[in-house]
Design a protein around this nucleic acid. Structure first.
Lengths: 148, 148
DNA sequence: CCGTTAATGCAACCAGGTTGCATCGGCAAC
DNA sequence: GTTGCCGATGCAACCTGGTTGCATTAACGG
C-alpha cells in the first residue's frame, strides 16, 4: 500500500512555503499521503506511520495535522461511502480536480481511473460551482474473486 | 421541510409488498422520507417524527427501519460531505440511478439536478461496475448570499 | 543561546452508529 | 375471536471516528 517515497526536501519546503513550522509530524504525514496510491482514512495513516520505527504520532495531532494540510491546500478531505473521511495529497502543481474515482463496495478501497472527467452539467441560476467528483462504485478485482 | 403527505395506503402496500410486517414505525418513517424534499439525516427524521403527536420512535429502531428500507429497495443511503448518512425515499417506479446531485458545502444540503448523467467511463480489466454517482459541490444560492 | 509562540500530547468529551437481549405486537392459523 | 409464533421494538451498553481544553514541548527568528 505504498509507492516510492517522495523526496523529503520537497515535502519540507512545501510546508515551509505554506508559512508554518516544519515539524516531524507534518513532514511524516504529508510524506505518507504523497506516497499513498489512494486516499487514506485516519486509521490507515496512523497504521502506516506506526511502522516507521519513529515515535508514534498522537491521534489528535494526526487529525490536526490533516486538517491543517487541508486548510493549507496541501491535501484534500472527502467522506467516503462509509461516512469516514479520507485524505489525499494535493499534487504540487497538477491539481486533479474533477478526478474520476472507483470505489470498491467490498473493501472500501478507492482507485483512480485514467478516464477523463465528464463535462460539468449546467447549474441552475444562483448556484456557485466548487468542484465535481464522479464516484463510480462496484467491486475491485480482488473482491470480485474473493466474493465468488 | 415537508411536502404534501403521501397517501398512507401507498406507503403501507409498498411495505407489505416487500414481504414484511406493516408497523407504525415503518409506515411513519417511509411516509416522512417520501414527504421530504431532500435527503434526510437520522437526526432530521427523528425530529420531524417527534412533531407528529404520536409516540416517539426509538433511535435504534429508526436506524433499523432505515436500513431495512434500504435493503428492501424502498430507500437509498449515502454519506454526505460531513460524513453522516442521508436517506431518501426511492420513487415507487421511477428508479433514479445515476442521479446527478449538487451538494452545498455551506449548509450541507443536497439538490437534485435535472441534467442527464454522463456516460460511464471504461473500467480497467477485472473491475465490476455497481453504480455511478456524480457529486457536484459548491454553494447553493442562499449560502452564496449569506457568505458575502 | 534565549524567548516567543505555534505545535504537540494527554484526557476527556461528543455524535453518529451498532449490538445484545428481553419484551411487545402483526398477522396468520386455527 | 382467540392463540401463538416470530419478526419488530425499546432499552442499555458499547464502539468508532472526530473534537475540545489545557498544560507541556520544541521550532525558529532574533
Amino acid at each position: 500500500m505504498k509507492a516510492s517515497a517522495p523526496p523529503l526536501a520537497e515535502v519540507q519546503s512545501a510546508i515551509r512555503a505554506a508559512g508554518a513550522r516544519v515539524t516531524p509530524a507534518r513532514v511524516r504525514v504529508l510524506a505518507a499521503l504523497r506516497a499513498a496510491t489512494a486516499p487514506q482514512c485516519h486509521a490507515e495513516i496512523e497504521e502506516s506511520l506506526a511502522q516507521e520505527a519513529q515515535p508514534a504520532i498522537d491521534r489528535v495531532t494526526l487529525y490536526r495535522v490533516l486538517d491543517w494540510l487541508c486548510s493549507a491546500g496541501l491535501a484534500h478531505k472527502a467522506a467516503d461511502a462509509r461516512g469516514v473521511f479520507r485524505f489525499s495529497a494535493a499534487q504540487p502543481n497538477v491539481e486533479h480536480a474533477g478526478h474520476v474515482h472507483f470505489r470498491c463496495t467490498g473493501c472500501g478501497g478507492v482507485f483512480c481511473l485514467k478516464a477523463p472527467p465528464p463535462p460539468v452539467p449546467a447549474l441552475p441560476r444562483g448556484f456557485r460551482l466548487g468542484g465535481m467528483a464522479v464516484d463510480i462504485r462496484g467491486e475491485c478485482p480482488r473482491c470480485v474473486r474473493a466474493h465468488s
